Lab assay of single mutants.
Amino acid sequence: TGEEYIAVGDFTAQQVGDLTFKKGEILLVIEKKPDGWWIAKDAKGNEGLVPRTYLEPYS
């Protein structure tokens, strides 16, 4: 389980392990790392690192 967040901007993977997403996408945050990069999963089940500055809590 995780917390749902909504993307407030588009993000394109910079390196292997990053997750590309579009503004408005709902992501499930699995782990919040202290460096500001969180592990998240998208609706298709893809998992990767995302920058927390692009996310806001979804309710």
Score class of each variant (00 low, 15 high):
T1P: 15
T1W: 09
T1Q: 15
T1K: 15
T1M: 14
G2D: 12
E3M: 15
E3Y: 07
E3L: 06
E3P: 08
E4I: 12
E4G: 05
E4C: 05
Y5K: 01
Y5C: 02
I6E: 04
I6C: 04
I6G: 02
A7S: 06
A7I: 02
A7E: 00
A7V: 03
V8Q: 08
V8G: 04
V8Y: 04
V8R: 10
G9I: 14
G9T: 12
G9K: 14
G9W: 14
D10K: 03
D10C: 04
D10E: 07
D10S: 15
D10M: 03
D10Y: 05
D10V: 03
F11L: 05
F11G: 02
F11T: 02
F11W: 13
F11M: 04
F11S: 02
T12N: 11
T12Q: 10
T12A: 10
T12S: 13
T12W: 11
A13L: 04
A13Q: 07
Q14H: 08
Q15T: 15
Q15W: 07
Q15N: 14
Q15Y: 08
Q15D: 15
Q15P: 03
Q15S: 14
V16D: 15
V16K: 13
V16W: 15
G17R: 06
G17N: 06
D18G: 15
D18H: 15
D18V: 09
D18P: 04
L19C: 02
L19F: 03
L19I: 06
L19S: 01
T20M: 05
T20G: 12
T20E: 09
F21V: 10
F21L: 05
F21G: 02
K22Q: 13
K22I: 13
K22R: 14
K23Q: 09
K23V: 12
K23E: 11
K23M: 10
G24A: 04
G24H: 06
G24P: 01
G24Q: 03
E25W: 12
E25Q: 12
I26M: 08
I26A: 03
I26E: 02
I26W: 07
L27D: 00
L27V: 07
L27H: 00
L28Q: 12
L28R: 11
L28M: 12
L28D: 03
L28C: 06
V29M: 02
V29K: 01
I30Y: 09
I30F: 14
I30N: 03
I30K: 09
K32F: 09
K32P: 04
K32Q: 07
K32N: 03
K33T: 13
P34M: 13
P34T: 14
P34Y: 13
D35E: 08
D35Q: 05
D35W: 05
D35H: 07
D35Y: 06
D35I: 04
G36H: 06
G36V: 04
G36S: 06
G36C: 05
G36I: 05
W37D: 04
W37C: 04
W37S: 09
W38M: 04
I39F: 11
I39H: 08
A40P: 00
A40Y: 01
K41A: 06
K41D: 02
D42W: 00
D42Q: 03
D42R: 02
D42V: 02
D42G: 03
A43W: 09
A43L: 09
K44N: 13
G45A: 04
G45M: 05
G45W: 03
G45P: 00
G45I: 01
N46T: 12
N46I: 10
N46G: 09
N46E: 12
N46Q: 10
E47N: 10
E47M: 13
E47K: 15
E47P: 05
E47I: 15
E47Q: 11
G48E: 01
G48W: 03
G48Q: 01
G48H: 02
G48K: 01
L49H: 12
L49T: 15
L49A: 10
L49C: 05
L49F: 08
L49I: 15
L49R: 11
L49Q: 10
P51F: 15
P51M: 08
P51K: 09
P51E: 09
P51Y: 15
P51V: 04
R52K: 15
R52G: 07
R52F: 15
R52Q: 10
R52D: 11
R52Y: 10
R52E: 12
T53C: 07
T53Q: 14
T53E: 15
T53H: 13
T53Y: 12
T53S: 14
T53I: 13
T53D: 15
Y54H: 15
Y54S: 11
Y54E: 09
L55P: 00
L55E: 00
L55V: 07
L55N: 00
E56V: 13
E56Q: 10
E56C: 04
E56M: 15
E56H: 09
E56A: 08
P57M: 07
P57V: 09
P57G: 05
P57I: 14
Y58E: 04
Y58W: 13
Y58T: 09
Y58H: 10
Y58P: 04
Y58I: 12
S59R: 10
S59P: 10
S59Y: 11
S59M: 12
S59E: 09
